[in-house]
Design a protein around this nucleic acid. Sequence first.
DNA 1: AAGCTGTTTAGACGTTCATCTAGACAGAGC
DNA 2: GCTCTGTCTAGATGAACGTCTAAACAGCTT
Lengths: 122, 122
Amino acid sequence: MSKQLPLYDVKTGCCTPMVSESLTEDVATDLARGFKALGDPVRLRLLSLIAARGGGEVCVCELTDAFAVTGPTISHHLRVLREAGLIDCERRGTWVYYWIIPAALGALSQLLDASSVAAAVR
Amino acid sequence: MSKQLPLYDVKTGCCTPMVSESLTEDVATDLARGFKALGDPVRLRLLSLIAARGGGEVCVCELTDAFAVTGPTISHHLRVLREAGLIDCERRGTWVYYWIIPAALGALSQLLDASSVAAAVR
DNA sequence: AAGCTGTTTAGACGTTCATCTAGACAGAGC
DNA sequence: GCTCTGTCTAGATGAACGTCTAAACAGCTT
């Protein structure tokens, strides 16, 4: 059930802070896909709800209840997050459970952190 | 020259890790604006080039040369980054200089970091 | 197997976005 | 003042996005 894209490979330089060298076009495209996935309020709240479970899994039914949008819309947003490599899911019986992928979020976090810290210091 | 939006106010909870409590709709909308600004390869590279200056300023003319797109397109992307509160600029004579706003990047970084770390631990 | 519930897929529709060209604006220098 | 260069604004256009309804799919239960 995890057809996620090959994102956030450390070797490609995704974890390289912005500050040490500027991003290549390929790497930027890769990372931008992750940030773009975070660039919607519904998706950010979805991720937040999943992350708030402390690394555990969350059933879609719980997520759907927390929003004003329809089920299919939630499903669409979860798919975007999954294809960006930020979350993954598994079906168990009737229900589908989602969880976050810490490494992916960590890579994005590091990129921003490094650049902001370095900029603040000098 | 800085008509940036009131983003990343710590008091609003922007720095609150995802993991401790889930984002409210308002805060999520606010933060999503920042991530959306990062969700384009050109903008990410622009930010990278500016950040790579180590907190110093970069002239637009240097940025334009590094991309295949036209000047107006670069100007548009810089405006998006500026309106998201991630960078700011100032005109000095003929040239316009841009620099990053570390606090804004730091806030976004923290959000992702907290959630990924906490998720990894438990 | 028939029906029920949870979830995803398909397709449509209006909005937003990234990019371009053309033109306006801001300073510098002649 | 005129012109030249650097930068931004305005408007147009095609692509991508967010949302919906309708329908399909996956398991459970009886």
